[in-house]
Design a protein around this nucleic acid. Structure first.
Length: 269
DNA sequence: CGCACCCCCTGCCGGC
DNA sequence: TGCCGGCAGGGGGTGC
């Protein structure tokens, strides 16, 4: 579910609420996430004061006062919300109580997410080498260089978190439409100009989505349990058969490297 | 190396 | 109406 704009929205919303707060209690109700919650998770978080929550790729990262980092990945259906104390509801797997009387709840029906407390070295391994999609060093020339000699599709390259961290299925479809590039195009066949347009489109799409609080297709909610609205601005994602908003050609839905993909056969080549 | 395919899970939707 | 198959925004592993 959550890609960069959704994770960024959560981080921006929760950071000022959490900074300086101390974790007074932790309850792990269900540890069987995709990566199981470690046995000492609660012990490593309890009593810690939280620093400023940030985002790298699709990970939420919060520094702790002992030098470790609290890490959250939302998988497909994870939600991390702050609010008044309440009784647990279905799929409330982890609960953090704060010294201001509120609590943070991690709810995740599919349990594909991850919660961990890691030192800097372990965190770097988990997060991987990918350059964050909003990093200013990403340029068309950078992408052009990374695409040289690659036999894979442009879609697979852009979705590869070891290359660019933060893009997922929705935003790759959206940015490729704006850049005029079909998702199955071989990465190595991108021109320098294609790459420049792709990077510019990526920034425009991500900035637009963040401004709208992310896309809420079904599950996504921000840190205050509010939906985003960028799904109303989608030009191609999940619009197979509907008219292209630029040229009215029916949008095509195809499968590329195992993921549903959407493009306009007229606007994209 | 790249990809198809499998897995992890629950929920929802469309077809019958 | 009810059941069942297919599919879903993520990521990791295997084997060809």
């Amino acid at each position: 579910m959550p890609e960069l704009p959704e994770v960024e929205t959560i981080a921006r919303g929760l950071a000022p609420e959490l900074e300086g707060r101390t974790v007074t209690g932790v309850t792990v109700r269900e540890a069987r996430l995709r990566t199981p919650v470690a046995r000492d998770f609660a012990a490593r978080l309890r009593g810690r004061t939280l620093g400023r929550m940030g985002r790298t790729g699709k990970y939420l990262v919060t520094p702790l006062d002992d030098g470790a980092r609290w890490l959250v990945h939302l998988g497909m259906t994870g939600r991390l919300t702050i609010g008044a104390h309440r009784l647990p509801i279905l799929h409330d797997h982890v609960e953090l109580r704060l010294d201001d009387g509120r609590m943070l709840v991690y709810n995740d029906p599919r349990r594909f997410g991850r919660l961990d407390v890691l030192d800097a070295a372990a965190l770097a391994k988990v997060v991987g080498p990918g350059v964050d999609a909003l990093d200013a060093t990403l340029t068309g020339d950078w992408l052009f260089a990374r695409a040289r000699g690659r036999r894979t599709s442009v879609k697979a390259l852009l979705m590869d978190q070891r290359e660019i961290a933060g893009l997922g299925n929705i935003y790759v479809s959206e940015l490729l439409h704006r850049a005029g590039i079909r998702p199955r195009r071989r990465a190595a066949r991108l021109t320098r100009d294609d790459c420049a347009r792709a990077i510019a489109a990526m920034r425009a799409v991500l900035d637009g989505a963040i401004a709208r609080g992310g896309s809420s297709i079904s599950d996504y909610r921000d840190g205050f349990d509010r939906a985003g609205s960028y799904q109303d601005d989608h030009l191609v994602y999940d619009r197979a058969g509907e008219p292209c908003r630029r040229c009215a050609t029916p949008i095509r839905g195809v499968v590329v490297v195992g993921r549903s993909s959407f493009y306009c056969p007229t606007c994209q080549r």
